[in-house]
């Protein structure tokens, strides 16, 4: 079965060039968060794992594992969030019926629209909240076990 590829103005993602600077700014704004901020958060958690792992008491080993797991999960969430950009500008979503009735921004009627309506980060935020909450509970359990 052939894989269902996305196209952007008729081009594949690796050969796609935005039409003008305004569209490029729209792409880059998302990449600064999805390719940048999420990834840096994951790397930061990995750094905390290393600090806890060796420099402190041996009882911190389990906490090091916990932070490594947290980092891995943030990497996965970052990867999933980054994929939103690939969908947001895909040709197949421009006239998709499920995006027919977005919330209108006051005072922006008639302005240029970039891609499909923006899907806010609700699910991703909930996922991250669940991940961090689980890690914090795990941290408390480990602390009380010592």
């Amino acid at each position: 079965m052939a894989k269902d590829h996305h196209y952007y103005h008729g081009k594949r993602s690796y050969s796609f060039y935005p039409q003008d600077v305004n569209e490029l700014v729209e792409f880059r704004a998302r990449q600064r968060t999805f390719d940048g901020a999420y990834g840096r958060s994951a790397l930061g958690a990995l750094g905390y794992a290393l600090t806890a792992l060796r420099l402190f008491d041996k009882r911190f080993y389990n906490i090091g594992i916990l932070y490594t797991v947290l980092s891995g999960l943030i990497f996965v969430v970052a990867f999933l969030r980054q994929r939103h950009s690939l969908h947001d500008f895909a040709d197949s979503y421009w006239a998709h019926p499920s995006f027919a009735n977005p919330i209108r921004t006051v005072g922006q009627s008639g302005k240029r629209v970039f891609g499909r309506p923006f899907v806010t980060a609700g699910r991703i935020v909930v996922s991250l909240a669940v991940v961090v909450a689980a890690v914090e509970i795990g941290l408390l359990v480990l602390i009380f076990q010592v």
């Binding site: 690796y14 792409f27 792992l53 990497f75």
Partner: peptide, 21 residues
Amino acid sequence: GFLTAVKPHFYVMSAVAVVVF
């Protein structure tokens, strides 16, 4: 439009995370 380093970079850094784990 799209930065292509994202996916290979994700795999490499996953390997680093596995090393830490």
